[in-house]
Nucleic acid binder design. Structure first.
Lengths: 131, 131
DNA sequence: TGCCGTTTGTTACCTTATAACATAGGTATG
DNA sequence: CATACCTATGTTATAAGGTAACAAACGGCA
């Protein structure tokens, strides 16, 4: 039973990568249950905690969903652009923004540790289709 | 039954302001149930939707909680600094950040509509107490 | 007055997340 | 090599957050 944990993490990450769009924990669970019917929610949440903890995946706070990190090895500093039409998310990295956010928040002595920077709107592709 | 809606909104806002810290929808509900035992969740969520819709309150996405807006009349562009120690939230407004975020996200043609900018960390007061 | 549309209240339910306990596997010690 | 312990994982059950869908009340208007 022991080794399966890191394998579960890898498999969750693989599911996320295969899917291409953000997935909720229960979407991941349902997909993985096809291979292992006994799988349950806490297993997924633990794997996601490990993945988000070391930067292999992001949690999209404003839609309760998860996304594989596409830039390898920044724990923080991602800007997530969420398309409300197609549900896709584009990830950018811009340290200038997080510095600035830390700076603004720090004006009262606040010590920033983790940044959540998300934008909702319409992606280029959907905007093109619309008109 | 008709007019009570806007009164409910005002009362929710009053509860939020009285409390001083972010509250979850169910915390608001429990508090307001003391005055009206028949109150139910959708009433609170509708009031919150109205309040966040016109900028009188903010939803703190990363903690599923709500906060009265302290700057009157910016719908967007708030930077929320969330203290993981005391649970307090400081609100700043900085349009330069949202412009920059919109810009970064817009590099692929993304059209930004709503910004979520939150920082987790330790507020000046808690940081002072710590050492 | 009586009908209609809109807003609010209410019930019931769904989704998201986690606490708490059960179990299995490695590992150190004699 | 046996076994007792510690830690990681699996499982059950339930808490927390949110909303769809229906019911009821109010105001406007013919």
């Amino acid at each position: 039973m022991r080794k399966q944990g890191v394998e579960t993490q890898a498999e969750v990450l693989a599911v996320l990568e295969r899917h291409g769009k953000p997935m909720t924990a229960y979407e991941i669970l349902n997909e993985m249950r096809e291979a292992n019917a006994r799988l349950a929610a806490p297993t997924i949440y633990r794997a996601l905690a490990a993945l988000t903890g070391d930067g292999r995946a992001h949690r999209v706070e404003s839609i309760n969903a998860y996304l594989p990190c596409c830039h390898e090895g920044h724990g923080d500093g991602a800007v997530l652009a969420i398309c409300d039409d197609c549900g896709g998310v584009e990830e950018q990295v811009d340290t200038a923004i997080i510095d600035r956010v830390a700076d603004v928040a720090g004006s009262n002595g606040f010590q920033a540790k983790r940044h959540v920077i998300e934008v909702h709107g319409t992606c280029g592709e959907c905007a093109g289709k619309a008109e």
